[in-house]
C-alpha cells in the first residue's frame, strides 16, 4: 500500500502511462538499428547487444543489492543503457571491454550519482567516452559491412579528403561506423515508433539535426552528407531525447538541441576528431540544470519574472 503514493519533488510532468512502459517502447525501437547492425556486421553485433544488456542489468542488481537499495532493474533503464552502449561501439569490439564500459555506465555514471533520475550524464555516452580514452585503437577499428576489412568512417574519409560512400549506401547503412549508427532507415523507423507512442518529443532531435544542417550549409559543406555520415541521427533520436539528462520543458529541449548541433559542427569542422556527437551531447548534459532554470515550464496563472505589476 505504501507504494501507492509517491512523494517526489517538483516539477511534476504528467505523461500517459508509467515510465516503465516508456522504457520498454525504447527497447522495441532500438531493435530496428540492432537488426540492421546484425545484417551488415554479422551475428557478433547481436551477441554484443544481448551481452551488454545482461551485464548492465547484472551490474545494476549487484550495485543496488550491495547498497541496500530497492532493486529496480525491471524498469528497463539498465537494458536500454546496455543496448545503447552496444550500438555506439565499433563492430567486432572485444566483449570484455564492452562489459567494462557497461559496468562503468551503470555504476559510476548512474549509480554513484544517485541512480535513475539523478545522473547528470547519459550513461551510455559517458561510457563510450571512457572507452574511447582507454582503448582508442579498438574504439576506432571500423570495418566494411559484410566483411572484416578495416575502413574509416565516412566523416574521417571526408576529413582527409578521400572518396565517401553514396547517399543511398549511407541511408540504408552500408558504410563503416558504430553498430547502430550506420542505418539511417532503421533509426528513422525506430524513432517513428517513439514519436507515435509519444515517448520522445520533437524539439531536441529536430533542433539538433536542423542546426547541424544549417551550419553545414552556411560553412559550405554538404548538409545531407553531414546528417547521414556520422552518429548524428542515432544521437539525436536516442541520446538527445533521454528524459533524465535533457531539459524538462519543450523550450529547454529546443535550446538543448541547438547547443548540441553547434558543438557537433564545431568539433567536426574545426576540432581534432572527425565526429563530435558523443562529446556534444555530454557537454550539453552538463548545461541542463542551467537550461532548466531559464526555460522552465510555466504554471497556470504564474506571473513572468520580469513582468512588472
Amino acid at each position: 500500500m505504501e507504494n501507492l503514493l509517491t512523494v517526489s519533488s517538483g516539477p511534476h510532468v504528467r505523461e500517459p502511462g508509467s515510465s516503465k512502459d516508456l522504457m520498454w517502447w525504447v527497447v522495441v525501437a532500438l531493435l530496428f538499428p540492432t537488426a540492421a547492425s546484425v545484417y551488415f556486421f554479422g551475428i557478433h553485433a547481436l551477441v554484443m547487444v544481448v551481452f551488454l544488456s545482461l551485464v548492465s542489468v547484472a551490474a545494476e542488481a549487484v550495485f543496488q543489492r550491495l547498497g541496500k537499495q530497492p532493486v529496480t532493474v525491471s524498469d528497463g533503464s539498465a537494458v536500454i543503457t546496455g543496448m545503447l552502449l552496444a550500438l555506439v561501439i565499433p563492430p567486432h569490439f572485444p566483449l570484455w571491454m564492452g562489459a567494462i564500459g557497461a559496468v562503468f555506465a551503470v555504476i559510476i555514471v548512474k549509480g554513484f550519482f544517485g541512480g535513475l533520475g539523478f545522473n547528470i550524464f547519459n550513461p551510455a555516452l559517458a561510457a563510450r567516452a571512457m572507452l574511447l580514452a582507454s582503448w582508442p585503437v579498438a574504439m576506432t577499428a571500423w570495418v566494411k559491412p559484410f566483411d572484416a576489412i578495416t575502413t574509416p568512417t565516412p566523416l574521417y574519409l571526408a576529413k582527409i579528403g578521400e572518396a565517401v560512400p553514396g547517399y543511398w549506401e549511407m541511408f540504408i547503412g552500408a558504410r563503416g561506423g558504430s553498430l547502430g549508427e550506420t542505418s539511417a532507415l532503421m533509426i528513422l523507423i525506430g524513432a517513428g515508433i517513439l514519436f507515435w507512442k509519444k515517448v520522445i518529443s520533437w524539439p531536441a532531435p529536430t533542433a539538433y539535426i536542423g542546426t547541424v544542417a544549417l551550419f553545414s550549409f552556411l560553412l559550405g559543406k554538404d548538409p545531407l552528407f553531414q546528417i547521414l555520415a556520422g552518429g548524428l541521427l542515432f544521437g539525436a533520436f536516442f541520446m538527445a531525447t533521454d528524459y533524465v539528462t535533457t531539459p524538462i520543458s519543450e523550450k529547454g529541449r529546443f535550446i538543448f538541441g541547438v547547443g548540441c548541433g553547434i558543438l557537433t559542427v564545431l568539433i567536426r569542422f574545426f576540432g581534432g576528431f572527425p565526429e563530435g556527437v558523443n562529446y556534444s551531447i555530454l557537454i550539453m548534459n552538463m548545461l541542463v540544470p542551467i537550461i532548466d532554470r531559464y526555460a522552465r515550464p510555466r504554471f497556470f496563472g504564474e506571473k513572468k519574472l520580469w513582468q512588472k505589476k
Binding site: 567494462i100 580514452a133 582507454s134 582508442p136
Partner: peptide
C-alpha cells in the same frame, strides 16, 4: 588490458 583513461586526468 589497461584502461588508459586512468592515467589521464579523468
Amino acid at each position: 588490458y589497461a584502461a588508459t583513461i586512468m592515467i589521464l586526468p579523468p
